[in-house]
């Protein structure tokens, strides 16, 4: 090795040692820069992953997931954590919390049939300027005729606008199996996934298909019409 040592060789050796140290400390290794480094990193990761005993999830990680879960369940927001100090002090419900709440409600809005009205009541509190989420114009009402399925990108979300019985709904355009973009088949009244053949009806419900398990329904975004425009709440 000594005899053949080159700049590249030394660089690689230094990188290997850095990566080995990171794994020993259970930290993220440096990202590989070459095909060789990728191959070496893969061996190191495989060795560490195949240890007999694995560490338990850390308390910090549990707290991180707990914060997500509590927030999604509409329980007491666990964020910001107490450690962030007096700044997060509450004087009743702050505007910020209301806005956050509205965002969470929008995420959970797929329970439309159960709780749409209830959610929309609360969304009202979050409307207006300065909100992270907001009502965004997705299309002109006239663009979405009865029975039509129209694809739109709105504020970073990919949506299908669907009108049935006069009412417009906004469904996520991604399959709930893996994030493949669905194709609309308005004639059949279906949304079809090109990846594994999953199918959804125009209410976003998973239909029997070649894919064996029933999939979760498509997330639905709150939608309303005003002044000839279709507005969608993007949280």
């Amino acid at each position: 090795m000594r005899a053949t040592g080159t700049g590249d060789d030394d660089r690689e050796a230094a990188w290997v040692e850095e990566a080995a140290e990171a794994f020993a400390a259970d930290r993220r290794p440096p990202r590989p820069r070459t095909a060789r480094e990728r191959a070496l990193l893969r061996v190191m990761a495989a060795l560490r992953a195949g240890r007999r005993e694995l560490p338990e999830p850390s308390p910090e990680f549990r707290a991180r997931v707990e914060a997500l879960v509590r927030e999604a369940a509409g329980e007491e927001p666990a964020w910001p954590p107490a450690a962030q100090g007096a700044r997060g002090r509450r004087e009743g419900v702050t505007r910020r919390e209301l806005l956050r709440w509205a965002g969470v409600a929008a995420l959970l809005a797929t329970a439309a049939s159960v709780g749409a009205d209830w959610i929309l009541d609360r969304l009202g509190a979050g409307r207006g300027e300065g909100a992270r989420g907001g009502w965004r114009e997705a299309a002109q009402s006239a663009e979405v005729a009865e029975g039509a399925v129209v694809y739109r990108d709105v504020a970073g979300e990919s949506l299908f606008l669907v009108r049935r019985g006069g009412r417009v709904r906004a469904l996520s355009a991604f399959c709930t199996h893996m994030p493949c973009l669905l194709h609309a088949d308005p004639a059949a009244g279906q949304l079809v996934c090109p990846c594994h053949g999953a199918r959804f009806d125009l209410a976003g419900r998973s239909l029997p298909s070649t894919y064996a398990l029933p999939l979760p329904s498509l997330p639905e975004f709150p939608a309303r019409e005003a002044d000839g425009r279709i507005l969608v709440w993007i949280g």
Partner: peptide, 30 residues
């Protein structure tokens, strides 16, 4: 996840991302 990445930091980020997606995508009545 850890069994497939071999370090805590990557395992935590990937697993947390899964929970983020779940809270965004899964219906409460699932």
């Amino acid at each position: 996840v850890y069994r497939q990445v071999g370090n805590r930091e990557d395992a935590e980020d990937i697993a947390a991302e899964v929970f983020v997606r779940a809270t965004r995508w899964l219906r409460p009545e699932a």
